[in-house]
Design a protein around this nucleic acid. Structure first.
Length: 785
DNA sequence: CTACGCGCGCTTTTT
DNA sequence: GCGCGCGTAG
């Protein structure tokens, strides 16, 4: 019960308890979840491990690379390793650093270690790359060249700043998409390069981008802002340029563990090298254990490079490689399918998953006629699953792109199957929340131009585009922040009386907020700022229906501030600044906004990484969709799509169901779809095919895809589908008013029906059970008249 | 300043 | 097919 409160809450209705989740404290949830592990203690630390896991856990002080396949007990190894270190080497929690990519992973690790050790591990640094870097920068802000009040901006803010720069530079949006500049900037930062380190040579495009980069750096500096990439870049530079700081961290973190190492980017690797002593003596580093799976690298488009796994083995002294290949999650058939698909990739480190368990059921492959049929099939299967007494909490529907969820949602709704959708807007990403946070940002630091831009006329206070343009120009010429420029404009009366009054009003507002929150707690400060901003009134007035929700969200933000507990246990009065940093850095992964205690999960394949479900649907396996056409065009990205497919397959514990559609409505028009090449990479003997009515045998013969010659030469025979359960029989429909008998619900009367007897659903009114929609193929109805 | 209308373009998103 | 961003009208 409690688990559900933590896991499945609705942001708009929830009150205090879910706030903890929102703020990233799913530690509580994790502890509740891992009760089954109770009883583990130091003495039986190693008894539950297999040989390979044991080898990883009990490695001496040499460096190690753990190649951990999906479902091979990776987290278990990590936490046991940490316990082992504490028990067997002369170090304390103070000497251990554990790095992850997500807050969720970090929290889970911390929770499980504390559970195991029966004590707090406060001295241990466990966190995300970004979180740990943030901590270091706060501690050494001066050496890092940052103001004490520096704030972190998210991608949204980053893009907005770049857009403003483009506008100021007079760049044509179509020729110079802001997205291009943003990725240029991020790429350079990930390579460890600031704008001063780059020369554009004679490349006119690059020289423009470089100019944008330079302006962006200046904007951030004026505003006291750093972006996500900066957290790493600036920390790396801090360590690289300050021997004493680097030395102190190096002396402290004798043992470093890195999770999801296949997703590490260049600057993260450089940071690791600096911390572990590679810059000082590459022959004698601290003990580093990296854990990852090259086959699950699906974020190369964000700068992750699998090659770092190889670099690690080569560059670090004496790296011991351990493979975890025994899988504790999936059935034999599922693993065989996953192995077969991923075998088509080249340049792998090599790994083959196996299990002690059964082969399990075949992998179901449904050939659907279109996306409606596909969604209906999935929906029918779920209803059958539920009727078998299984939990639909254990079911996931995965797709390549978010747009695909629409039809699935519609059909699930129609069949009254509750679902949760992952990937929606996060609480802290909502417009009204961002508005409120930007007021807080501006109060904490008036130079924050991004925050200024957002709230200067929100709610509208008569400060128009023209006025703002003048202020911006003034700021540019003076080299000051917008707030300072606005202040100066008012003092010197540089604009019309009306504009000056409006600007003065805004400046007074921020000043009064700032004065009034002195000596106040975080919760009180947030309350004051929100009240003075008049945002609630604005949203309430603005749009009636959504306005109410927005106001509730704003109230929840206040709650969040009131219950916010500092990560630093000794700090009983967290600052506004800390709360703000937390809100951009330590928010939870995007989760559903449907408050369903027991529901099917819908998400993209990317979001599914790290999760597992008893029943998994892999939908839309069609050329162009999955693999996505963007990846087909760009050639070398096909292997990443295949890894994504591997990730999808390995999410399934018991049953895997793959679907594709012959036609699909895509971008508004009907498209003929070819089955995905990945379908042909699954050995046909593992498959059990199900065909929709009227679907022709498009799948029987493998079309030729223009992929580079496969590394795997043994071409298979794709032509013999095992068994075709064709739902094509003609049958009579039910008749309204007909009496039927159902095993559980007893006798009833048919009120409505869709499709035919074999392949449709009927609405029946049962005595004592009410009106229900049942799928005829599963309901086993017998007619009474 | 806002409200509407038209045109375009369209993956994935840990921090 | 839908959302976003820009442009014009009110």
């Amino acid at each position: 019960m409690l688990k559900h409160i933590f896991k499945n809450h609705d942001y708009s209705n929830s009150k205090i308890i879910p706030l903890a989740t929102k703020l990233g404290y799913n530690v509580f949830f994790v502890i509740l979840e891992s009760n089954s592990n109770r009883g583990n203690n130091m003495s039986n630390l190693t008894s539950s491990l297999n040989d390979r896991q044991l080898e990883a856990v009990t490695t001496s002080t040499e460096n190690s690379l753990v190649i951990a396949g999906a479902g091979s007990g990776k987290t278990k190894v990590l936490i046991h390793r940490i316990a082992y270190i504490l028990e067997n080497f002369a170090v304390s929690t103070f000497n251990i650093l554990a790095v992850t990519f997500t807050n969720k992973a970090a929290n889970e690790m911390r929770g499980r270690i504390e559970q195991m050790m029966h004590s707090s591990i406060g001295g241990m640094w466990i966190g995300t790359f970004h979180g740990l870097c943030h901590r270091m920068l706060r501690q050494h802000y001066a050496e890092a060249g940052l103001p004490e009040s520096f704030q972190i901006i998210d991608q949204d803010d980053q893009t907005k700043i770049v857009k403003k720069i483009h506008a100021a530079m007079g760049l044509d949006e179509t020729k110079w998409p802001p997205k291009k500049s943003v990725s240029y900037i991020n790429n350079k930062k990930e390579s460890g390069l600031e704008s001063k380190d780059i020369t554009a040579q004679n490349n006119p495009t690059e020289s423009v981008l470089l100019h944008v980069y330079n302006n962006y750096e200046n904007q951030c500096k004026i505003s006291g802002l750093i972006d996500f990439a900066d957290l790493l870049l600036k920390t790396y530079k801090l360590l690289q340029q300050n021997d004493h700081i680097r030395q102190s961290y190096k002396d402290r973190f004798k043992f470093i563990l890195v999770d999801e190492f296949q997703d590490i980017n260049n600057i993260q690797y450089m940071w690791l090298k600096a911390l572990s002593g590679m810059l000082d003596n590459p022959k004698d580093t601290n003990t580093v254990m990296v854990v990852g799976d090259d086959d699950q690298s699906i974020y190369s488009w964000r700068g992750a490079e699998i090659a770092h796994i190889l670099s690690f083995s080569k560059e670090y002294p004496g790296v011991k490689t351990i493979r975890l290949e025994q899988n504790y999650r999936s059935t034999g058939n599922i693993l065989e399918a996953a192995n077969a698909v991923i075998a088509k990739n080249g340049g792998r480190l090599g790994k083959s998953l196996w299990t002690d368990g059964d082969k399990g059921s075949p992998i179901y492959l449904y050939h659907s006629s279109n996306e409606v049929d596909e969604a209906s099939f999935v929906s029918n299967q779920i209803m059958a699953w539920r009727q078998n007494g299984k939990n639909i909490d254990d079911v996931a529907i995965l797709y390549r792109s978010n747009a695909q969820s629409r039809m699935i949602e519609e059909i699930l709704n129609r069949n009254q199957i509750p679902y949760r959708i992952y990937g929606g807007l996060r609480f802290f990403d909502r417009a009204e929340i961002k508005d409120a946070l930007c007021y807080m940002r501006l109060v904490a630091n008036q130079n924050d131009n991004a925050a200024f831009d957002r709230v200067i006329n929100q709610p509208t206070r008569g400060i128009g585009k023209q006025t703002l343009e003048s202020v911006r120009e003034h700021a540019n010429t003076q080299g000051t922040s917008l707030y300072e420029a606005a202040h100066d404009t008012v003092v010197k009366n540089l604009l019309s009386a009306r504009a000056c009054t409006a600007l003065a009003g805004f400046i007074d507002l921020i000043t009064s907020m700032k004065n009034e929150i002195n000596d106040k707690t975080l919760g009180e400060a947030a309350t004051i700022i929100l009240a003075k901003s008049k945002l609630k009134e604005f949203y309430l007035h603005d749009n009636k229906e959504q306005g109410q929700t927005k106001v509730e969200n704003l109230e929840e933000l206040i709650n969040a501030a009131q219950v916010y507990i500092s990560a630093d246990e000794d700090n009983h009065n967290p600052s506004l600044s800390e709360f703000l940093a937390h809100s951009t850095l330590a928010t939870d992964k995007r989760e559903s906004n449907k408050d369903n205690p027991n529901a099917v999960s819908l998400m993209t394949l990317h979001s599914a990484k790290g999760l597992e479900y008893n029943l998994v649907f892999l939908t839309g396996l069609e050329e162009g969709l999955f693999p996505h056409k963007m990846s087909i065009i760009e050639g070398d990205r096909l292997e990443e799509e295949r890894r994504l497919c591997y990730v999808g397959i390995t999410r399934a514990k018991e049953k895997l169901c793959i679907t594709h559609a012959a036609t699909r409505r895509l971008h508004g028009s009907e498209t003929y779809q070819t089955p995905s090449r990945f379908l042909y990479e699954i050995p046909s003997e593992l498959l059990q095919e199900i065909k929709a009515k009227g679907v022709s045998s498009g799948y029987q013969q493998k079309p030729s895809y223009n992929e580079k010659p496969s590394y795997n030469q043994n071409d298979r025979d794709y032509s013999k589908p095992k068994r075709v359960a064709d739902n094509n029989q003609d049958s009579n429909s039910y008749r309204l008013g007909q009496k039927v008998q159902h095993a559980k619900f007893g006798s009833g009367v048919i009120l409505n029906y869709e499709g035919d007897k074999e392949n449709g659903r009927v609405q029946i009114k049962f005595k004592g059970y009410g009106v229900k929609w049942l799928v005829t193929s599963y309901a086993k109805l017998s007619t009474l008249d």
